[in-house]
Design a protein around this nucleic acid. Structure first.
Lengths: 145, 145
DNA sequence: GTGTATGCAAAGCCTTTGCAGCATG
DNA sequence: CATGCTGCAAAGGCTTTGCATACAC
């Protein structure tokens, strides 16, 4: 996917991105909408969604689709992992991955009491490799989503 | 989470489970509904959702919330990982995890041309550990979701 | 000035839920 | 024969989209 670039630098897009960057947490679109609206009262939710989608496509931010209802957004486009609290649903970052986590011995991480993890791969299945059709165009090799 | 057990063995629940078990793929609730309806035309979508949820709670099946829109269901409750095709969205299982995948050198897996992976941990955050409130009740230590 | 992005509101999609009747144990 | 489960349909929550207007370039 050759990144579709924002065509114009609108104030809305700037505000959405800036507010996301300020946050260490990973807000949902609606949460970010509420925050950004403090600065720009006429901002509409549709615009927030459109911009978040666009920014994620361009790799400026990450769209996280952790298990659970809605998408969350992460202002840091670098590869890293996430921990989510099973109680309060909050999401934190994990930057250093223990080498031995595969063995399932992880007890704690980033202060969290670890309960489990989820690991999903992404790729092109054998059938689609044969088809050779290029619908994916080339997903980021680092793409987590 | 003390598993809430199905109270009654209804024909609907049996059909939903049986049809899911037959599949090697990981259908959405709606897909499974279509399949099951072939055997039980009056089956309703609401019932499918209710039963899938119930079966997942009991650990009989797995509810997968891979990135993307809807939930998918896996008749195999054992811990394993998943690969999703970036083109056709199909989901396959990964049972053997390469020890060195952390290094990011995985090129292929289960015939897939691997493009990336996603790893999310689950646990109780430091704040919630202090609170000591037991809202999580005890999530499965192996729980992927 | 041209065409993209916005605001607004309606619609879409997946999922959940209320309710009255049915069927399981 | 009590009550959990079902079918049906409506509602809910998050997200997307159509359209006329406003704004970036």
């Amino acid at each position: 996917m050759v990144a579709r670039r924002p065509q114009r630098n609108t104030r809305q897009r700037a505000v959405v991105l800036e507010e996301l960057m300020k946050l260490s947490c990973h807000p949902t679109a609606v949460e970010l909408y509420e925050i950004a609206r403090a600065r720009m009262p006429k901002l509409s939710l549709g615009t927030v969604y459109r911009n978040l989608e666009l920014l994620a496509e361009n790799g400026v931010i990450q769209k996280l689709q952790l298990s659970g209802a809605e998408a969350r957004f992460d202002g840091n486009p670098e590869r890293h992992y996430h921990v989510r609290c099973t109680r309060c649903e909050r999401v934190d970052d994990v930057h250093d991955l223990p080498e031995d986590f595969v063995k399932g011995h992880i007890q704690s991480l980033a202060g969290y009491d670890i309960v489990g993890f989820r690991l999903d791969f992404r790729g092109v299945c054998p059938d689609c490799q044969q088809d050779g059709c290029g619908t994916d165009g080339g997903v980021s090799p680092q793409g987590q989503d």
